[in-house]
Nucleic acid binder design. Structure first.
Lengths: 347, 347
DNA sequence: CTGAAAGCGCTTACAG
DNA sequence: CTGAAAGCGCTTACAG
């Protein structure tokens, strides 16, 4: 029966038993070597390793999963639109999975539909049970999905949720420290009139960046300080929406001399919008973003922004999902470029 | 023994047997319902489906894989740097996997190291045997990796390889048709002096785009027609390299009046480079790209480019990997925007 | 330090 | 149309 292999089946692979036969030990001992069990003599280990090489043995993940009741799979969700932010996360997560003998499974969801990720999770988990799920913004604030994960007993880790979530391990970037540093940089350069972009609903982690920026302003308590908000209007992409925000902010009576956009895509749009109006960046208006992700690479002039280590954060999330552990916060870094400081001052 | 569940194990799940008990049939019949076997009476099917709902039964992928000798997993490789192109592919592939009851597995590799993807494949496949592997550029022209896949008997599908690869199913975009359309567009607008960007080594699919563009020029056989190539110099990102290419092309004696960049990231850099030199796009120089991917979203002015349906191509690749089938070619679409036609002409 | 047994939860033929 | 048996290739206790 076992020899009947229809064409679509993968070739029957070498088993531990067969490796054991070649090495002159039992298959179980081969399993021990593979599991790095210390209770194996060096000589046996040596023999087994040679036999593994000779036979081209590859452990069968399905069998292993079934016996061990773990899948060696970690799932992460990808929104159905291009997101540079998420692309960076995936790379970091995939690398970390590989390093831990795990594999990263990508699940797609519809970002425009609030319940979609939950539905996708339910449907998908009918087929595979991953060992853990990693939730990135905006899903890291999806209470319903998190509740479902909890009640399923599914390990889960949040990346950069807005605020702490009780009893759920999370990986944060120290956004507050970065924003304070950015604010101080702008303040020190003499900026007093600030423009901000209203964050879209359902993205509390973006809103939070604005909130912290406003707190910085408040702490200065200087009366002439003022913040002006561009309303949120979606124009089909972060860039175009940022461009519209710039048009709003820069065509009023008293326009801001510095604009903080809650992420790089918006910031680039703000710069384009300003330049279209003939307003020079940074001479007439300084612009800063957040993330230092791929979008910052496309910005001109080069964008002053706050770099968060997304790849390391994703890697940490994978490790927390696999091994458990405490929430942690990664430092961020203010990257000063020519969108806030003219080139000639850069030396 | 089976009741000893260490904390790290996933909870024991409901089995087909148990569902069968609830439904008053054997577990095998439950399996038939799940497999959509037509030889099940409607009444039985109904009973079983109710029992599945009541018990919250979820089939165990590991057990299924082990018994059926297929993993229900498709692997795709992601380079270790941000790539908008690849991010678009992944989304399409993930969606198609979901629709087919499969899952997409992300494998990371080092784009700077030629043998890295092969090494990564070998190492990873020691642990999981996927049912298929999808190779996207530049891996879709990696002979060594493809040979290895073949000798492993691993199903594989190529996305947009440069040239046909013998006996390997591939998904193409009709780049030639798109490039001819783009060339005709530029020609019709009176452009005669063309600038091109030399493609990086190891990316024959980009080189191919230049080659086709040059063929179009040749076919015109017009003596004053000329093409000028910017040398390839990597400046850390496609955008910055394109910017340098523009600086090269636009500071010679007889500068081009239209520049074709082999992809959108380069094209955006070319536009930035031109604008820095005070050369207006499109009035003084028209610029066009290729892909209409996420990079085109960041471009200003909006970029004329050739849209290829990356998500559908990736979805098709997944289907070929799962079900087999013939190579196929997707139509592309010239998207004319303001980088080649001034806004006032757009109506 | 190593082996034999039992079991993970499915699918695949084969009977009936 | 439905059931009982065998098997997929591992891991987990338990013996020795």
């Amino acid at each position: 029966m076992r020899q009947v292999i229809p064409p679509y089946r993968t070739a029957r692979s070498v088993t531990q038993e067969e490796v054991g036969r070649v090495a002159g030990v039992s298959g179980k001992t081969v399993g021990r070597v593979l599991a790095r069990d210390p209770h194996v003599s060096a000589a046996t280990r040596e023999k087994v390793e040679r036999a593994i090489r000779e036979t081209g043995f590859r452990p069968n993940l399905a069998a292993r999963s079934l016996a061990a009741a773990r899948s060696y799979l970690i799932a992460i969700f990808v929104p159905d639109h291009s997101s540079l932010y998420h692309a960076d996360l995936f790379r970091g997560a995939a690398a970390a999975c590989g390093a831990n003998g795990y594999h990263l499974l990508l699940e797609e969801y519809d970002a425009a539909d609030n319940g979609s990720a939950l539905a996708r999770y339910r449907e998908s988990q009918r087929r595979v049970r991953c060992d853990g799920v990693i939730l990135s913004p905006p899903l890291s604030n999806d209470r319903e999905l998190i509740e479902c994960l909890k009640s399923d007993g599914m390990a889960h880790v949040l990346i950069a949720p807005a605020g702490k979530v009780e009893n759920v391990p999370a990986v944060f970037a120290d956004e507050r420290a970065g924003l304070i540093e950015l604010f101080d940089h702008l303040w020190a350069r003499g900026h007093r009139r600030f423009g901000l972009c209203t964050a879209p609903l359902g993205h509390p982690y973006l809103q939070q960046r604005n909130d912290i920026f406003l707190q910085c302003l408040e702490e200065k308590g200087v009366s002439e300080s003022d913040a002006m908000f561009a309303p949120f209007v979606w124009h089909g992409s972060g860039m175009l929406s940022g461009r519209a925000a710039a048009a709003f902010l820069l065509t009023r009576g008293s326009r801001p001399d510095a604009i903080f956009a809650f992420n790089d895509e918006y910031a680039q749009g703000v710069m384009i919008g300003a330049q279209e109006l003939g307003i020079r960046v940074p001479q007439a208006v300084a612009v800063a973003g957040f993330d230092d992700g791929a979008a910052a690479q496309f910005a001109w002039p080069p964008l002053t922004t706050i770099r968060q280590p997304l790849d390391r954060m994703a890697a940490k999330a994978v490790e927390l999902a696999i091994h458990g552990g405490e929430s942690c916060t990664y430092p961020v870094q203010l990257i000063v470029r020519q969108s806030t400081v003219p080139e000639d001052l850069h030396g």
